[in-house]
């Protein structure tokens, strides 16, 4: 294997159920229910998932939810804005820790 991530592994996701089928079944049932049309549309949920995929930096999820967003009728402009939401959250999460840095610095400084 030349890389840790192989795109051909994604269609094999269900194999994870071989050792613990009951747990896998519960997970996949839950997963399907989460993404069903509800108070949020399936299209909106795919856009959220695309943003989360970028925050998690999961290449399988990025491929899967790029395809899913397109197939639910989203366009590149909407998908790019979703990625910026992920970016803002990750960036903001780093930056807000600067308060902790400032407090710690204040504690040990004149």
């Amino acid at each position: 294997m030349s890389t840790y991530y192989d795109p051909q592994d994604l269609p094999r996701f269900a194999e994870i159920g071989q050792e613990a089928p009951n747990l896998a079944q519960k997970f996949f049932d839950y997963y399907g229910a989460v993404f069903a049309e509800g108070e949020l549309s399936a299209r909106e949920k795919s856009l959220i998932a695309l943003a989360v995929a970028h925050a998690l930096q999961c290449p399988y999820c990025i491929d899967a939810y790029t395809q899913s967003c397109l197939e639910k009728g989203s366009n590149l402009a909407e998908m790019t804005e979703a990625v910026h939401v992920a970016c803002a959250l990750r960036g903001g999460a780093a930056l807000v820790h600067g308060v902790q840095m400032r407090k710690q610095a204040a504690k040990v400084s004149f």
Binding site: E37, R43, L70, K72, G73
Partner: peptide, 11 residues
């Protein structure tokens, strides 16, 4: 492109 169409009713 090379992807499937969205569902008709919500679209």
């Amino acid at each position: 492109g090379a992807f499937q169409p969205p569902e008709q009713a919500p679209t």
